[in-house]
């Protein structure tokens, strides 16, 4: 198949950047979206031009490194799919595909389609863990955990930290990301001990970093490649109220 690409090119964080048009030809429908960009990059290198910089790593939809805003959707139009798992058979021959970086104040563009997502690490560092040290913990089976809660915690923990929720949200809010971590621990007895401090610290950090406010549009849930539920946001709100009320 042949495609017309409109790709955001930006040489450096301070560069103004602009869209550049490219044509790619004879792309196999079995190729992945990133392989299609690989092919474009090979051609650019052959021609002596600068290849398109984009983030990617595991290419099996779990590391959360790949991003890209494709035709108006983070990770492209296919539901529950990361960009690396998106395949060209989902596009039409001759289609124009617009490829942009994530856009949010806390995710500055570094180069072309690469953005800096270290804000997410900072949020986790502010309290997204259970403060146990290595060794000296009880036997794994000493705390029985209700299967339903364990499953819900796993649903929340499936977050890959890719930032699609922020990219999708019209307010660039990080609530889905933060609430997934808060929920995972709020649902488990081990996590309840620090629950109050955790939610307060993580929300404060999220605000400080300049993410927007959640207005319950639920775009994040629709676009999340791991289908994390907005019920987690409600759970975080609940946890926050509990924490504030003591």
């Amino acid at each position: 198949m042949d495609l017309k690409l409109k790709i955001w090119r930006q040489a450096s964080p301070t560069d103004k950047g602009q869209f550049v048009d490219y044509d790619v030809h004879n792309i196999s429908t079995d190729a992945s979206f990133l392989e299609m960009i690989d092919i474009l990059n090979d051609e650019l290198i052959e021609k002596g031009e600068r290849p398109v910089a984009f983030d990617h790593d595991c290419r099996e939809g779990i590391c959360g490194m790949c991003s890209l805003y494709i035709n108006g959707h983070p990770h492209g139009p296919e539901a529950a799919t990361t960009t690396c798992q998106l395949h060209m058979r989902k596009f039409k021959d001759g289609e124009t595909v617009v490829i942009e970086p994530w856009r949010a104040k806390p995710f500055p563009v570094i180069k072309d389609l690469i953005v800096d997502r270290s804000a997410f690490d900072e949020i986790i560092q502010s309290g997204g863990y259970i403060s146990v040290t290595t060794g000296g913990v009880p036997d794994g089976n000493s705390i029985p955990i209700n299967k339903e809660h364990a499953d819900l915690a796993m649903d929340a923990a499936a977050c890959i930290g890719c930032g699609a929720c922020v990219a999708a949200c019209k307010n660039a809010s990080a609530m889905l990301f933060v609430s997934a971590k808060v929920s995972q621990f709020a649902l488990l007895p081990q996590g309840k001990i620090e629950a109050h401090d955790r939610v307060k610290a993580m929300v404060a950090k999220m605000d400080e970093l300049g993410f927007g406010n959640c207005t319950n549009t639920y775009a994040c849930e629709a676009e999340c490649p791991k289908e994390i539920s907005v019920a987690n946001i409600a759970r975080m709100n609940r946890e926050f109220i509990k924490a504030k009320l003591g």
């Binding site: 060794g135 009880p138 794994g140 955990i145 299967k147 915690a153 996590g191």
Partner: peptide, 19 residues
């Protein structure tokens, strides 16, 4: 296993709540 459970790793559980 003990360490990871303490960290909040959501391992699969049986209905009785055990791992």
């Amino acid at each position: 296993i003990d360490q990871c459970v303490a960290q909040g790793v959501p391992f699969a559980r049986e209905y009785g709540g055990t791992l």
